[in-house]
């Protein structure tokens, strides 16, 4: 395998990783601050993608589509937080899993009802399409490079938000001791709604960004949701730093495993067996990674609490 091809695959892995991070950041914040497992996070990803596809179809503006994806998902997030989610904070994880599983059913079927079963398409705008030449002669799609840039910018923004702003201080305090910050006069239920809507908005944005390189359809959120869970579990639930490192690990493992393992197996067996065994193992690789991390560190790489 040539170094150029390898470099392209590494970039693909990083691109998948940063998008997973944008998705996982909200999930890990919601768990860290409110102690809630939200399976419906994938539905918010889908809501963002559909909102973007609808707005882009009506106005033709990609920027407007991204803004509306963020807004629609954040609004949907705030709505379900107020109606359903806030009743679940005091419940055990089983109730949370079930209630948010029910929300997935409602969101998926509701979207199918409104938009139909056929996939929608969200086109990459002209100014972001086509390849660019990177140092070393690597040709890489500009749009994917933009995704990496946006993802890293969001990561940087979140780190500033968490470590430097007043809201960030309240979020960190909420992770440590929620009774205490409520006693100090912080409106905890408003804080929870804000954190939930923030995570939802990020998921919606990720949905719109990724929706442009795949089709926008019902059920697109769940595979990403499961990957995002793998990410936050590897990184340690509640840790933004863990989510970033976990996301990059998962993105690179998934992408490189799929490319490299069949080649690796060819060193030992005949090509046909190597391809099937290699791709079978590659599809399981991130789950193996997760199992290994959890067996080695039962609360993830940067997690403090179980």
């Amino acid at each position: 395998m040539s170094p150029i091809l390898l470099a392209e695959q590494i970039l693909n892995g990083v691109q998948l990783g940063v998008m997973l991070f944008v998705m996982a950041a909200g999930l890990t914040l919601v768990f860290g601050v409110m102690g809630l497992i939200n399976l419906a996070h994938g539905s918010l990803f889908m809501v963002g993608a559909f909102a973007a596809a609808a707005v882009a179809g009506a106005t033709g503006s990609f920027m407007l589509a991204l803004v509306s994806a963020l807004a629609a998902a954040a609004a949907a997030g705030a709505l379900i937080e107020v109606l359903v989610i806030r009743r679940l904070y005091a419940r055990d994880h089983l109730d949370q899993v079930l209630a948010t599983f029910a929300l997935i059913l409602i969101f998926s079927e509701g979207t199918r009802w409104i938009f139909g079963s056929f996939p929608l398409y969200l086109n990459i705008p002209d100014y972001l399409s086509g390849p660019v030449t990177l140092p070393g002669g690597i040709q890489y799609p500009l749009y994917r490079l933009t995704l990496i840039g946006i993802g890293l910018a969001i990561a940087a923004g979140l780190f500033v938000l968490i470590s430097k702003t007043r809201l960030g201080i309240q979020i960190r305090a909420g992770e440590n001791d929620r009774e205490m910050i409520a006693a100090l006069g912080v409106d905890i239920s408003k804080l929870y709604t804000i954190v939930f809507a923030l995570g939802a908005g990020l998921a919606g944005l990720a949905g719109a960004l990724v929706g442009a390189i795949q089709s926008v359809q019902v059920g697109m959120g769940e595979p990403v949701l499961i990957l995002a869970f793998v990410v936050i579990v590897i990184g340690g639930i509640g840790s933004i730093k863990g989510a970033l490192i976990g996301a990059l690990l998962v993105g690179l493992t998934d992408t490189l495993g799929g490319v490299l393992l069949p080649h690796l197996f060819k060193l030992f067996t005949d090509p046909a067996t190597a391809t099937s065994a290699g791709s079978a193992l590659a599809s399981m690789l991130i789950y193996i990674l997760m199992a290994v991390v959890l067996i080695w560190k039962p609360t993830g790489l940067f997690g403090a609490r179980a």
């Binding site: 768990f31 497992i37 994880h93 899993v97 499961i226 869970f229 793998v230 579990v233 639930i237 399981m284 789950y287 193996i288 997760m290 199992a291 959890l294 067996i295 039962p298 609360t299 993830g300 179980a306």
Partner: peptide, 18 residues
């Protein structure tokens, strides 16, 4: 079973997906 709580939910999910 080396893990517990939410990590247990997630690791069993991961084995299923595997």
């Amino acid at each position: 079973l080396r893990t517990s709580g939410v990590y247990f939910i997630m690791i069993t999910l991961a084995f299923g997906q595997m």
